[in-house]
Each structure stands twice: as structure tokens, then as C-alpha cells.
Design a binder for these strands. Structure first.
Lengths: 219, 219
DNA sequence: GCGGAATGTTATCGTCGCTTACATAAAATC
DNA sequence: GATTTTATGTAAGCGACGATAACATTCCGC
């Protein structure tokens, strides 16, 4: 009945193979969601708004995700994929001979990503926003990041460089500080601490340096 | 017309003065909201659910709060009031002679409250959940807590006990760690770090001890 | 090409935050 | 102490949300 409403029927599809009606709606929704979160914050994300931005009806996303939380999980996985990529790159550049310097470099990489992608970091940190248990790939990458830090700690202990030999405690302390600094920034607590926007990241890195120096063996 | 439906007309008011129709609906809503958050988490709070629990219609809360965020702000202020009370008590018991021990005691008090009131801590940390600027009393109490920590740092510097003399940096480092540990717990990250529920608080306190020891002057 | 599976739309449901119109109880005024 | 005024409640309804069902279209295997 529709009298050839669009003459796109024979159009050659653009490089990302356009599949069915939309193309790759699933990926488009994830991308639109990430952009939305980046622009408006995680709490601004609604399934309908994402659908709007992808140019489809409000029910369309439910063909690809059973629930809002499932969509958020896919978005979180994409965010983690990006974080993981950057993190691994930083790891490769990090010193391997000096374990304490490596420990510090890992923390810096973590901080840097969080400060540059605050809303994405926010999503990844907040487990009420997505289904952590159901995000297999995300969990694996998260663990990989954790192991990198743990190994740096172990190496430092092996070289007898630290004032404690409790891997778990050292690990928790390092992560606690870095996580806290990133969270303070994301949660908007920095200004109240007399730390201006432009210097927040530098200050956070100095705080990490201070911890690293403090963890080093005194004698 | 109502034939003395209640014989309360001349009753001496109970300590929390029962006012109009409901009594003190405003306070009842705040209390119900706090209980709801404690039981179901901050994201479970809706104006309608709070109204339901207070036994009033879904529009009633809007007589006392112009918006959901205003209700959340009042709830946050009550949470902060409780936190502040406990914190001040701890401050009074904290050592005054040894600034580093005082610094540590302050951190422990902060951690302790966060671990025992995770959902309330969550609300206070997340500025998207309430109107921080509009919460005057909360802001004052928050600043008071911050000043207590800052003064401990200054005292420690004055006694030449720390490896840095940058108040702002030391302050940020201490708060960053404590905030991060509390946040990790609240955000549910502890288990993945091999830290079981029952030992999380003790571990967090040990991490704080480790930082305090590390900040102390080596020589 | 044809039939089913995959993927889209429209319409609808119940809940949410919030507003409006109305009702009633308490306080203020005389 | 009756009346007016103000404070506080309810009922009904709006638009947006997450989610589902019924229907339409497109793709893909045969």
C-alpha cells in the first residue's frame, strides 16, 4: 500500500553493515545512551529518551533489552570496555622494574580516566544502576584491573619496599584512596574542599604520591 | 457536625506537639522516608510510597515539600543531624594531646557511622539526590566536621609530626581514603576485594591506620 | 518466492512527580 | 462563641516513565 515512501530501497549500506530496519539498533542505543549520560548525567537516562535519540519508537529498545537495567548494563559494559582499553595501554607504558612506581602509575591511570569520564565512572561505580552479576565481560575486565594493582603490590612486598606485608590491606588502602578521590570529584565534593576544577586532578595525583611515599619502608 | 469524633480536643499535647489533621505530617514524612531508605535503599524512595507509609494521600506531602527533591533534602538534613551528633560525641572523646591520634580518631568516627548507616551515608554523599545548596543546616554541620579534621592536620603540622606541610593536600588525602573506603562499602565493592561483610569495617580502620603511620614523619 | 523469525510501530497499563479544585479542621478575629 | 481566614488534607487528572501486547514490516533460509 505505501507507494514507495522512501527511495532508499536499493541504497548501498554504510560501512557498519545496516541490518534490518534500523541497521544495528542495539549498538545505536548503547552509543546514544553513553552520549546521553555524558551530556546529562546517569540519572537523566530513560529508555524513552535513548529511543528518541536513536530515532525509534519508545518500545523498540525492548526488542533488544528486556529492561531498562539491561540497557544500562550494556552501556556500562561499553564504558568498561573503553576504560579497560585505556588502562591496559597505560599498564604497558608503566615501569616494570620499580614496583612502587608501577603501583603509582596504575593509580594515576585509574584517576585520569575517572576525571576525564566522570559520568561513565559514576555508572561503573554504582551497582544500583546496572546488573553487575549479569555483566560477565565487565566483571572479567574489572578483575583484570584489580589483579594488575595486586601484582604491583606483591612485587613491592617481594622487594621488601613496603612498611606492611599484608597484600589485601595495601591493596584496599590504595584502591580506597583512588576510588575515594575519583568519587569525591564525581560526587561534586571537591569545590567544598577548596580544590578548584582545574587543579582537582593534579591534587588527586599528589595525594596518591603522598600515600605511595608513606607506604614505602622508612628504613 | 462531627459529633466529637475524638475526645482529644482538650487533651494535653504529647511531647511532639500534634498539630492539625495528621499531627506533624512533615516530621512523619521525614521519619518514614528515612526508614524506607534504610530498609530499601535510596533509589526505592518515592513521594507516593512515603505518603503511603505515613498513611496520607499521595498529594499530601506536597503541602509540606514543593518537590520530591525538597523532601529528600529534609531527609538528608535529618540524616546529617544524626551523623553530626555522633561525630561531635566522638570528637569529645578523641585525644587532644596527640594530633595524629586525633586525626585517626576522627577518621574512625567517620568510617564507623558510614558502615553502620550505609544508606544514610549514601544519601549524604550523593548530591544528585538532594539540594545541597538549599540545605543550610546540613552545610554548616558538614563544614564543622571538615574543620575538625583540618584542625587536627594543622596541629600535627605545628608539632612537626607529618611528612608534608600542605594542609589542603593532607586533608584531601585523609578524606579521600576515608570517603573511598566508606563508598566502597556502600557501593558494594568490598566483597569483590576479598573483604567479607563482618571484617570490612575493621579492615577499613586498619587502612586508615596504615595511612596515618605513613603520613608521620620518618625521621 | 514463500514462510517464519527478527525487528519495528501503535496502543495500552500501572506508577511516578506534580497540579488543580475542592473539603475540612485549626487559628485568628471580632 | 460565631465567623472568617488560613493551614492542611483528599480526589481527580496531566504528562512521562517502564513495560507489555497486538499488529506490521523486513530479512533470511528453504
Amino acid at each position: 500500500m505505501p507507494t514507495a515512501r522512501r527511495s532508499r530501497t536499493s541504497k548501498v549500506r554504510a560501512s557498519p553493515v545496516r541490518g534490518y530496519h534500523h541497521g544495528d539498533l542495539r549498538q545505536a542505543l548503547v552509543t546514544a545512551g553513553l552520549a546521553l549520560i555524558e551530556a546529562e548525567g546517569a540519572e537523566a537516562l530513560s529508555v524513552r529518551e535513548v529511543a528518541r535519540r536513536a530515532g525509534v519508537s519508545s518500545a523498540a529498545p525492548f526488542r533488544h533489552f528486556p529492561s531498562r537495567i539491561a540497557l544500562m548494563t550494556a552501556i556500562a559494559e561499553e564504558a568498561m570496555r573503553r576504560f579497560h582499553r585505556e588502562f591496559v595501554e597505560a599498564l604497558e607504558k608503566a615501569p616494570t622494574d620499580d614496583p612502587l612506581a608501577r603501583f603509582r602509575a596504575i593509580g594515576i591511570a585509574y584517576l585520569r580516566w575517572a576525571f576525564r569520564n566522570p559520568t561513565h565512572f559514576q555508572v561503573l561505580s554504582d551497582r544500583t544502576l546496572f546488573d553487575f552479576e549479569g555483566a560477565t565481560e565487565l566483571r572479567r575486565q574489572d578483575q583484570e584491573i584489580r589483579l594488575a594493582m595486586e601484582e604491583a603490590v606483591k612485587a613491592a612486598i617481594a622487594k621488601d619496599r613496603l612498611r606492611s606485608d599484608d597484600v589485601r590491606l595495601l591493596h584496599l588502602t590504595g584502591r580506597g584512596l583512588v576510588y575515594g578521590l575519583a568519587r569525591m570529584q564525581v560526587d561534586g565534593h571537591m569545590p567544598r574542599w577548596g580544590v578548584a576544577e582545574h587543579e582537582a586532578q593534579a591534587m588527586a595525583e599528589k595525594a596518591l604520591d603522598l600515600l605511595a611515599a608513606g607506604l614505602a619502608k622508612p628504613a
